[in-house]
């Protein structure tokens, strides 16, 4: 985490706790073929939705901020990417 002295850093899970979600039962994003999804998303995805376990890239959609970054960096065959349905997903209030 941050090496700066003084202020306490906030963990990403705790940060995402401040953002409101109405999580859908179905994932709106799914890895179809890992080879078409870059591992760098573990660094770049703003909600750290992507993690690697060993060589395997894992994804969990619950904290997704719907920015579209992973769609841009992935091959169309690598990822099924949709906006959530029925108004679900992130619910921004003060942005």
């Amino acid at each position: 985490m941050s090496e700066e002295k003084g202020l306490k850093p906030i963990k990403i899970e705790d940060l995402l706790q401040r953002t409101v979600y109405d999580v859908d039962e179905d994932p709106h994003i799914e890895i179809i073929d890992e080879r078409g999804v870059p591992k760098e998303l573990t660094m770049l995805c703003p909600c750290s939705c992507y993690t690697t376990v060993g060589e395997k890239l894992l994804y969990s959609y619950e904290g997704c901020l719907e920015c579209g970054l992973c769609r841009v960096l992935s091959e169309p065959w690598g990822l099924r990417w949709e906006y959530p349905k029925s108004g679900r997903g992130v619910q921004y209030r003060f942005t």
Binding site: E4, G6, L15, P46, R93, T95
Partner: peptide, 19 residues
């Protein structure tokens, strides 16, 4: 948490995060 900028808000609560 940058030592210069954070002087302004200190440890005020973060209300929301997004991208």
């Amino acid at each position: 948490t940058h030592p210069f900028f954070s002087k302004i808000w200190g440890d005020a609560d973060v209300l929301e995060y997004g991208a």
